[in-house]
Design a protein around this nucleic acid. Structure first.
Length: 269
DNA sequence: CTTCTATGGCAAG
DNA sequence: TTGCCCTAGAAGC
């Protein structure tokens, strides 16, 4: 679920459903009881996303900061909301919808100074109009770290997760182990542009699709992919299967505790 | 039942 | 690098 496109969708959904009106807040699970009491009855003024961080601004100038981590989830539904199922950390209820938050890595209240600091420690987000890709380029072009690790570093680029990382490197034909400083500026600009397009499409569709027209299931006469994230991809979780472009077996290896997927044929080096 | 896994990120060593 | 946190569903007995 939660790469940057998911969080931008959640921000839009909160805006659409809750903004401008007082909401009720509670913590059925109890772990955010004190925070929920402080939000309860407030008006939601704005909803913002920076990378994988969701920020909800309330009328007392405080912000709810949510980070889903690897298994956090939101579930929106109608009112009246049914009795909560499972570990619901936070339930927001508005005039005609409710939102249940389960399993977040972070769920806390921040003041404007904290929010500013949060933005400052995050790199440019390809989904934000104010993003400056040169800030990322300055880090990447001086780094001996692999481009695969740099793309997952949220202080370099915000919002890219394991799927977009693997897929953009595949689409750009870049070997994951390539040190940042060996990328040319042109290559980086292509990566950034591709991320911006792929992630914008992810926001629109609500899933991650990265295969080009000529490699879709219809075009290739292959069965559609069925996976949790629901999208058509080139390498993510396709290890052992033939590359859709060159037929080489897709490989996986562990990098900084995460599975990295790539095609040795299309991403030589 | 139990164990494993996941689209994250942090602190400790 | 390892361990730990958060949760739910799938996979393995």
């Amino acid at each position: 679920m939660p790469e940057g496109h998911t969080i931008h969708r959640l921000a839009a959904e909160h805006r659409r459903v809750f903004a401008g009106r007082a909401i009720r807040a509670e913590s059925p699970q109890g772990r955010f009881a004190a925070g929920a009491r402080q939000i309860d009855g407030r008006v939601l003024r704005e909803a913002d996303a920076h990378g994988k961080h969701l920020l909800l601004g309330f009328d007392d100038d405080r912000w709810l900061h949510v980070h889903l981590g690897i298994y956090g989830k939101y579930a929106f539904g109608p009112v009246p909301a049914p009795a909560p199922v499972g570990a619901v950390r936070l339930r927001l209820t508005g005039a005609d919808a409710h939102a249940d938050l389960r399993g977040p890595n972070t769920c806390e209240l921040l003041d404007p100074v904290d929010v500013k600091a949060l933005h400052a420690r995050l790199g440019p987000d390809p989904l934000r109009p104010d993003a400056d890709p040169d800030l990322a380029w300055r880090r990447i072009s001086r780094s001996h770290t692999s481009v695969a690790a740099l793309l997952m570093d949220q202080s370099v680029v915000a919002g890219v997760g394991n799927i977009y990382r693997a897929e953009v490197l595949f689409r750009q034909g870049i070997a994951p182990a390539t040190p940042g400083r060996e990328l040319t500026r042109e290559r980086w600009e292509a990566v950034w542009a591709d991320l911006a397009a792929l992630m914008a499409e992810g926001v629109r569709a609500g899933r991650i699709d990265t295969v080009r027209e000529e490699h879709t299931p219809e075009a290739m006469g292959r069965p559609p992919r069925v996976d949790d994230h629901g999208g058509e991809v080139y390498v993510y979780r396709r290890s052992g299967m033939p590359c859709l472009v060159c037929g080489t077996e897709v490989r996986t290896e562990s990098l900084v505790g995460r599975n990295l997927f790539y095609c040795p044929g299309c991403q030589p080096g």
